[in-house]
Write a protein that binds this DNA or RNA. Structure first.
Lengths: 256, 256
DNA sequence: CGTAGCCTTGATGGTGATCAAGCCAAGTGG
DNA sequence: CCACTTGGCTTGATCACCATCAAGGCTACG
């Protein structure tokens, strides 16, 4: 299966971060679990490793467990038309994956990179949730964040011009990396062009062309196929905001 | 302002329904508040009325209150490019509107029809939430539902063909009316064509043409501009699922 | 009856999906 | 170390589809 159980009691335990509902924290994420709670959750959870490309669960499966990502990237998706996938979300460390509806998973999940994650059985979690208001509040915060991200995803999908979609996608990735305090100007693309295409609702070819368009406009620069640098933020923002056709006509590029 | 405060202590109090997380309830929504809890929430809330077209709150406003719709339809939206609106969601009776992020509303909200709603101040709600695990659990269930709906919205927006988007939109409305136990085969469109367009990410003209296309395919029939009947469900489903171009070429329509 | 807003219908052009071929990188076996 | 293969990525051409502009209905309300 490509998964290995490496329960290590020495770990600090599950970790979840999200943006606060009420207090203003300046865009930074809050750590939502005390060390003690993490330790108590660690007791009922196990640590799993999934190799790149491995299916974590499938849509419609009985939802026996929820996952808390420690490292790596997960995608959740729906299979539509035998060939076509729709990627619902990319999930990163400290996110929760696999909230059920009526006891079943609503999407499928797969490891985009190698992934390590806590597996928390719902049977134990449910009773613990009911008793611990703080834990419930954590779930509320995290759900709010996921909701906002799903709404941003929907907003991205309404953009009618391919480069605008890609520009907004880059902003989302950068925004996430910033929230986690990772390196600032270098954006890493852990997923394939094909995955990006299935997320933004375009063909892989259009994804490629759009990256090229943003690069030739001077908004971004590629170091290699998975690493890019934002060299002109306002240019990227303009590209992302642009609903209108061809902001720069391809032919007359500022005749110098 | 077009709003009137009609606090009526005789009301049963806020009512919220959602789909269960764990137990399977056969697609029906669960009522999530006991009569006693509703009464206690009623004490801290007031009933407001908004006329059609009135703004309920604006993106970025300090989020002083959360709303629970009693009757009518609300849209939440973002203003993008001076002209362009993106409708994030339509909200119906028993839904919650106005969950904040960092103390501010993330979208604007406006009454699509005349609306009555409970207004629940967050200052009181927050402390009550922390003490009442059942209330928190309610919010979790409701957030899960909103999340799933946002994800379905995103799925809708990836459809590349206009009639497929509209077909899925009709299914969503019907699905909602079914969950509320309203009339079965007659679907009511409370919002304007323009609102639909801003929700599905198309032009108003394309919305009109798509409705027409579905009607001429025999999937739906319009009674008037706001009421339609689904006459061929499988045809509608095929239209909604269809990612491929022109399932029925416009020219050769079964030469009779 | 008149006016205004919403909705529908009609043309045209731009944009991206699609098909197809070439390119690059990583992994494999000789 | 190098030929070969494989999969992902990029580039090139064509055509259907929808956004746009524009005009004509329909409905509601005064």
């Amino acid at each position: 299966m490509g998964t290995t159980n490496l329960h290590r009691p020495g770990d600090r335990g599950p970790s979840v971060t999200a943006i606060g509902l009420w207090g203003s924290s300046g865009g930074k994420r809050l750590h939502l679990l005390t060390d003690e709670k993490r330790a108590r959750l660690a007791v009922i959870s196990s640590v799993l490793r999934f190799d790149k490309g491995v299916e974590i669960y499938r849509e419609g499966d009985s939802a026996d467990a929820i996952f808390n990502i420690i490292g790596g990237v997960v995608k959740t998706y729906k299979n539509l038309d035998h060939q076509t996938k729709h990627i619902v979300a990319f999930l990163f460390p400290e996110d929760l994956v696999g909230l059920p509806e009526e006891g079943k998973y609503v999407n499928s999940a797969e490891a985009v990179t190698a992934v390590t994650a806590y597996r928390i059985p719902v049977s134990v979690l449910e009773t613990r949730l009911r008793r611990d208001p703080d834990l419930e509040f954590l779930v509320i915060c995290k759900l709010c964040q996921e909701l906002r991200e799903a709404q941003r995803h929907a907003l991205l999908l309404t953009k009618h011009h391919a480069p605008a979609k890609i520009a907004m996608f880059v902003q989302m990735l950068e925004n996430y990396q910033c929230a986690r305090g990772e390196s600032l100007e270098e954006v890493y693309l852990p997923m394939s062009r094909c995955d990006i295409a299935d997320y933004v609702g375009m063909s892989a070819e259009a994804v490629s062309r759009s990256f090229h368009a943003l690069a030739s406009r001077g908004a971004i620069v590629f170091r290699d196929r998975r690493h890019l640098k934002i060299v002109n933020r306002s240019c990227l923002e303009r590209a992302a905001a642009n609903l209108e056709p061809h902001q720069l006509p391809y032919r007359q590029q500022a005749a110098s």
